[in-house]
Amino acid sequence: MTALLEIKDLVVEFATESGSLRAANAVSYDVSPGEIVAVVGESGSGKSVTALSVLRLIPEPPGRIAGGEILFQGSDLLALDDEAIRRVRGKSIGMIFQEPMTSLNPVLSIGRQMTEAMRLHLGLSAAQADQRAVDLLKMVGIADPESRLKAYPHHLSGGMRQRVMIAMALSCEPPLIIADEPTTALDVTIQAQILELMKDLCRRLGVALVIITHNLGIVARYADRVNVMYAGSVIERGPAQEIYRHPGHPYTVGLLNSVPRLDRPRGSPLEPIPGNPPDLVSLPPGCPFQPRCGVATAGCADALPGLEAVAAQHWSACFRSRQVYEGALT
């Protein structure tokens, strides 16, 4: 299947007081039509910066997209002028952010914010756009949608605001939605409601979904394929079941061993990854994970490993990925 979105060797740099840093360091991943792809990683791994680059939302300066390609339906988004990228945002790619209170405009009514994009991108009249907004709110499970159009964001709970964001993201029927930590700020029962809603709608409408998260449980429940990021690079990619059952990178193994699990009794062993994530201004030589890695060898500090296939549709960026994959190093 041809990819809907293909990110190739994306480099994003930020100028900081202590020097220039690469928030995304040759990031590549792709998304096929209708699938759910997870991008998982810790703070500073580059997962959000990559997503923001797709919609060209990186603040410049201090940020700068310094290289690579982002192909969406075959055309390079990085080559578009401002006018053309505005037609992509909302129309072709919907975006859902973590904190709906900051991504919704507090002084505009819900109806005004929902209909703006539809009138612009779909050319609907005010009445048509209102009707479509009501239908969309119904679809995302908001009761009494007509009166909600007149409400302001602060009238709604966090879960309701996130439902409005989903309705807005879907409003122009984009083939792709990018959701950046969509439920991190929500309570667990509301998180389940929102994720279930997103999954059902995307499956039903054939929309591809990129979920950016740090939560390995959410990835396991919802994703078809997974990209694991560390220090600005994708260090492992594969089908979700594969990645959890046979991780091919020591960092992925470390992550899986450091999450407490609801299905394991008290005091089950937890093996934290030692040390801290690297400072992006002064990355360690060679593999960026090498100083924290339990199976690193002398050669790991000499060169940066690239993604190599360890199984069908499964890649890992580690010199010892074969042995890690086979479980020979634990």
């Binding site: 667990v188 029962t189 998180q191 389940a192 409601q193 390995l216 959890y244 699990r261």
Partner: peptide, 21 residues
């Protein structure tokens, strides 16, 4: 509502979604 980091378990699990707030 709490997902377990294991896709195989998640596929078998019953997901009870609590309505309302």
């Amino acid at each position: 509502a709490v997902p377990v980091p294991d896709p195989e378990i998640e596929q078998r699990r019953q997901h009870q979604i609590l309505p309302g707030e």
